[in-house]
Simulated assay, not measured.
Amino acid sequence: MTAEVAVLGVGMHPWGKWGRSFTEYGTAAALAALMDAGLDWPDVGSVVGADTVRGGYPGYVAGATFARALGWQGARVASVYAACASGAQAIATARAQILAGLADVVLVVGADAAPKGFFRPAGGDRPDDPDWLRFRLLGATNPAYFGLYARRRMAVHGDTLEDFALVKVKNAALGALNPYARYRKRVTAEEVAASAVVADPLRLLDICATSDGGAALVLCSMDFARRHGVARPVRIRAVSTVTPRFPNTLLDLPDIATDSAAAVEPPGETLRASIARTAYEEAGIGPEDLSLAEVYDLSTALELQWYEDLGLCGEGEGAKLLREGATAPGGRIPVNTSGGLASFGEAVPAQAIAQVCEVARQLRDAAGDRQVAGARVGITANQGLFGHGSSVIAVR
């Protein structure tokens, strides 16, 4: 049987541009999660923090930073960093501690105070950092990268600007219903089309902003949940934090100079698809079992790509799935019921945790006007540092 841990509490600090310390956002989210779980801070046996490289020294030791802010009480601490996958890796670390018997209750916290404008690698010149090289040598900021994805979909699958706009319209309508979202205003396809071009073909309303915010989870063993009187909690059944499969060294490559027939066999699936496959295999389910999905919509076009990589439809059929209404509220598989990053923006260490907060609320039937009727299985997905990513599957 798949090893499971219970989600006993969820908590968030609203996303926005507040101009305060990430510690304040994370602490507020942590206290909200503890209240939701019906626990006190001394009940926590371990704190796992998702790091923020923009928070200076405290951000690099986020677990200890949050433990100190909440008050020293003897809990274990751990800190993890994997860019946008940091939150899911923090969840994976917490789950491992619980399943190993090191703690019955673990608090997972991520928060960020993002700078204005485009993200850039921290710490000055870093020629061994692929992101630094991409920015410095190619001038490819993240929106430019998103634009390349969008152009590829248009060329290969026939997606249109109108398709991309429909993603924003859907997510903005859901974000308008979410009290934690930064942008709580519905938009029309015409407004998306009229917004400024940032990285052709993507407009301002096609891409996500950078934001401040925080999110937290209280995870516990199944035995603890039962002792706490929660007979049927939301359970995390799978956490996938996989890396790409590509040749790493010259020794792995064929001698293409002397053997014209030699070729590297391309991977049978994209990284995003491998993230999902690993999660499905661990959870013992398939995409047909899902009630909802929270995906990493850095751009409207990228959300369509996730539909395919999660197996919600066939390759090249993402826009068709969207136009049919399958990913909207009331559809076969609602996607980004929280409003997605389109409505929140990026608070990097918090966003994978926030995705699980949304799934947990949905599975509890506690998402208010955003509620997916009869939700029983949810998946999250995002990419992270050096191209690897993460996916969490929760069930009830």
Rank of each mutant, 00 (worst) to 15 (best):
G340P: 14
G314F: 13
P349T: 08
A360Y: 08
W306G: 01
L312M: 11
A360H: 10
G325V: 00
A347D: 11
T337I: 13
W306E: 00
C357W: 05
S343R: 01
A350P: 15
F344T: 08
E317I: 07
L363M: 05
Q362A: 03
S343T: 13
G331A: 04
N336S: 05
V359N: 02
E324Y: 11
G330Q: 05
C357G: 07
P334L: 06
E358C: 09
E317K: 10
L322Q: 06
V356D: 06
G331E: 02
A366T: 13
T327K: 13
E324D: 15
L310R: 04
G339H: 07
L341C: 06
Q305H: 14
A326P: 00
C313H: 13
G316C: 13
A366E: 15
A347K: 09
E324A: 15
A366M: 14
R332G: 04
A347E: 04
Q362K: 00
C357T: 05
G331W: 09
A350H: 08
L363C: 12
P329I: 02
D309C: 04
P349K: 05
D309G: 04
A366Q: 15
E315I: 09
Q362D: 14
C313F: 12
G325D: 03
S338I: 10
G325R: 12
N336A: 05
L310Q: 03
G316Q: 12
R323Y: 10
G314A: 15
L312I: 03
L321D: 06
I353W: 07
Y307W: 10
G368Y: 14
V348P: 13
G325P: 04
A360T: 14
A354M: 00
Q362V: 05
G318F: 05
T327E: 00
C313T: 01
E346D: 13
A366H: 15
W306M: 09
T337M: 08
G331P: 01
L312K: 02
R361G: 02
E324Q: 11
Q305G: 14
K320V: 15
A354P: 00
A352Y: 06
E358A: 02
Q355N: 07
P329V: 00
D365M: 12
L322K: 07
T337Y: 02
A350L: 02
L341N: 15
A326S: 14
V356A: 07
L341M: 08
A354H: 06
A352W: 07
D309N: 09
A350Y: 04
E358G: 03
L312F: 06
Y307L: 08
V356C: 01
R361W: 15
L322D: 00
A326H: 10
Q351P: 14
I333R: 07
V356E: 00
C357D: 00
L341T: 12
T327W: 07
R332E: 06
A319W: 02
A347V: 10
A360Q: 00
W306L: 08
L321F: 10
A347S: 12
Q305A: 15
G316K: 12
E315M: 11
A367K: 06
L363S: 12
E358N: 08
E324W: 09
G368K: 09
A354D: 01
G318T: 08
G345L: 08
D365T: 11
A342K: 10
P349D: 06
P349V: 05
T327Y: 08
G331T: 09
